[in-house]
């Protein structure tokens, strides 16, 4: 589940976990209604933001907690806790208290505790947000490895779009308490249906205009005095209707003089930034306002300069027709 802060993703997770009752509607797991079940009867593992480890219990006792409250025999507890700590590579620290561990280690304990009782589902509420970038990448890899190994469904809440793209099988994008769009990372990034997702999951430029005519496999629309070609998505939009086309910065190119392109747009460089692997250039265009372009640095062709005039081009299939709001 991905969304900006305040979009309701944690509230939705709390409903799945059973801490918040929905005003309307129901929650089902594998076809069974679970809306009426209290959290302790749902058998879902949960990793909280800030981990919520029990500060008065050792690592071992934290992980053993779900088994103890289920009154499992002692030998089984020993064995399962060991296995769970093994899984997160924390066997040597089992007698320490949570506050004696680093953030990454605490995270692993929280994970072991949520997995030790073989839950039906694992819920994670921004589990990596408190960690630094490098550790986060490491734990992301580890979570993916665990996910493959256990074959258990994870519901992962994050506001970090890169995390969502790299870790998910399916992404649900939320905004203002609503589900905006859902799909695989590839679908959502490559073929977003809404302007919100096009701009939130990566960045997009938007070109707006009115449909002028239909052509083979596409249509022509005009905006700000310029004409553009666009491939159709599902059906041809009515002539005269308004359209919004999202353009990924990396799908734009700078045209060499005299080069052919479906669409062309001239403008002046307002600012540029170098990121090692790429240039990001902001181009002021008279017909479409500021347009941002990302060019692979090794293949940029030009070295940008502020005030330089240039012509941008993209193919009719590069843009994606999206719904506003």
């Amino acid at each position: 589940m991905l969304g900006p802060s305040g979009s309701g993703k944690t509230t939705l997770l709390m409903m799945i976990a059973g801490f918040v009752q929905p005003d309307r509607g129901g929650i089902h797991l594998g076809g069974q209604p679970i809306t009426h079940l209290p959290p302790e009867a749902r058998n879902f593992g949960m990793v909280f933001q800030g981990y919520a480890l029990f500060p008065h219990l050792s690592v071992f006792d934290n992980v053993a907690f779900p088994l103890k409250v289920r009154r499992r025999p002692r030998a089984e507890i020993e064995e399962k806790v060991k296995a769970a700590l093994d899984l997160v590579k924390l066997t040597t620290q089992s007698q320490r208290l949570p506050r004696q561990l680093s953030g990454g280690q605490q995270q692993r304990v929280a994970l072991a505790r949520a997995l030790v009782f073989t839950p039906h589902l694992l819920l994670l509420d921004e589990p990596l947000s408190a960690l630094d970038k490098k550790l986060r990448a490491e734990l992301q890899e580890e979570l993916k490895r665990l996910h493959r190994k256990l074959g258990l469904s994870f519901i992962y809440v994050t506001h970090d779009q890169d995390e969502a793209l790299s870790m998910s099988d399916r992404i649900v994008v939320m905004s203002d308490g609503r589900l905006v769009e859902q799909g695989t990372p590839l679908e959502l990034y490559d073929r977003p249906r809404t302007a919100f997702v096009a701009d939130f999951l990566g960045k997009s430029n938007f070109v707006r205009g009115r449909v002028e005519s239909h052509v083979e496999g596409g249509f022509v629309f005009s905006g700000g005095g310029a004409r553009f070609m666009q491939q159709i998505r599902d059906a041809k939009p009515d002539i005269g209707s308004g359209v919004t086309v999202a353009l990924r910065p990396e799908k734009l190119s700078i045209l060499a003089p005299g080069a052919e392109s479906d669409n062309r747009l001239s403008g002046v460089v307002r600012e540029w930034n170098y990121f090692g692997s790429e240039f990001r250039i902001l181009v002021d265009t008279p017909s479409c306002g500021p347009i941002s372009v990302a060019l692979p640095a090794w293949n940029a062709g030009v070295s940008p300069e502020v005030g330089q005039s240039l012509e941008l081009g993209w193919s009719a299939g590069a843009g994606m027709e999206v719904q506003e709001a």
Binding site: G18, A52, F54, F65, P66, K68
Partner: peptide, 25 residues
């Protein structure tokens, strides 16, 4: 309060949560 939620999500009843998590803390 997340400690209470954590305890419940791990399968502890309210009584167990009170005895094992809230009171000791």
């Amino acid at each position: 309060p997340r400690l209470e939620q954590a305890s419940l999500s791990l399968g502890a009843s309210m009584g167990q949560t009170l005895r094992l998590v809230i009171i000791p803390n």
